[in-house]
């Protein structure tokens, strides 16, 4: 056996077998107790001095009061079926061609419409019915065909887009059917605070699922403008940040990083691509011991010489 092979075999056996060399006293429980004590002092200190952030939730009432034009435009988009939620695809709707795919892989479609949301009905018509607001407009809407409903809402949405600041009061007259009354009725109940309860109560008394409210809020621009001010949007390294000046989920930096790379972040299927990249990298990290080259990096870049410097000094 060549000397190099003998040497390698000896090293291997030394790695595997119980240590036969010198030892030092060690008390596992004592080290744990000291660790808990020291770390506890640090954590209590940070909690007492820095505290934790708590920006209040944003309600539909906050939105309607702060930016009524955005609220009306969003409600109109829900009726027209053009909002993000209404046209999202699985798991909320069955909109064709809305899913993110990678070649033949379409996991979004495979998962199915498990959390069905009818944006026009769930966000606008049902709450108006529950709150008995604009009942005549609701009746007219319900009596119309879906094509007519879409035509009315689309025309009104276009008109709002051309109005000064999107102000409904400056919209030119047109054939909008009951849509202006529906959206104004929704705005009125939202400003009074009743819409939050009406949408939430669609899930019953013990509803713990605010998904419809969060999706409705996110269809407008008001919600994202608040997030931008708190440096939370995707192009600001997204959800790894926390409101205020707190560290947040810094361990998600690599996930957020890929969205900052224009070649990836601008892709229509960026979310799916980033998920695949992260799954791949996580598997690589877990399997480093078996990957030639990668597992040899610690030998090539001798950081271990620093870590075990006392051992090497005494060789």
């Amino acid at each position: 056996m060549p000397d190099s092979q003998k040497s390698r075999a000896r090293r291997k056996s030394l790695d595997v077998r119980a240590w036969n060399g010198t030892t030092r006293p060690y008390d596992l429980l004592k080290e744990l107790a000291i660790g808990v004590l020291v770390v506890g002092v640090i954590i209590v200190g940070f909690a007492a001095v820095a505290g934790s952030p708590d920006e209040p939730t944003i309600t539909l009432q906050n939105w309607a009061q702060a930016n009524p034009n955005d609220f009306v435009a969003t409600a109109t988009a829900e009726l027209a079926g053009t909002s993000d939620t209404a046209s999202y695809g699985p798991p909320y709707s069955s909109t064709a061609g809305a899913t993110q795919t990678l070649g033949p892989i379409d996991l979004q479609t495979m998962s199915g419409v498990q959390l069905r949301i009818d944006a026009a009905k769930d966000f606008v018509i049902t709450p108006l019915t529950t709150l008995d607001s604009a009942p005549d407009a609701v009746s007219t809407w319900r009596a119309a065909t879906s094509e007519q409903q879409t035509a009315w809402a689309t025309s009104y949405s276009d008109a709002l887009g051309k109005a000064s600041n999107g102000d409904p009061s400056t919209v030119v007259s047109g054939n909008y059917g009951p849509v202006p009354q529906l959206t104004q009725g929704l705005l009125t109940v939202a400003k009074g605070g009743a819409l939050d309860g009406a949408i939430q109560s669609e899930g019953g008394l013990y509803n713990t699922n605010p998904t419809p409210t969060i999706l409705f809020l996110s269809d407008g621009t008001y919600f994202s403008s608040l997030a931008t001010a708190q440096h939370l949007t995707g192009d600001q390294w997204g959800m790894m940040n926390e409101t205020g000046s707190y560290p947040g989920q810094s361990w998600l930096w690599l996930f957020s990083f890929w969205y900052q790379v224009p070649l990836i972040g601008n892709l229509p299927n960026a979310d799916l691509v980033v998920v695949f990249i992260m799954v791949f990298l996580t598997l690589v990290l877990a399997l480093v011991p078996f990957i030639p080259g990668l597992r040899s990096i610690p030998r090539w870049i001798p950081v271990h010489r620093l870590i075990w410097r006392d051992y090497y000094r005494k060789r």
């Binding site: 920006e55 798991p91 996991l107 998962s111 969060i214 999706l215 939370l232 979310d271 998920v275």
Partner: peptide
């Protein structure tokens, strides 16, 4: 609070795209 609302909104896309969000 607001942070949890925003994270829920923002995180859903990656999970939905990979088929996990439905569950």
């Amino acid at each position: 609070n607001f942070d949890s609302q925003w994270i829920a909104y923002q995180a859903k896309d990656a999970l939905n795209a990979s088929g996990i969000g439905a569950w």
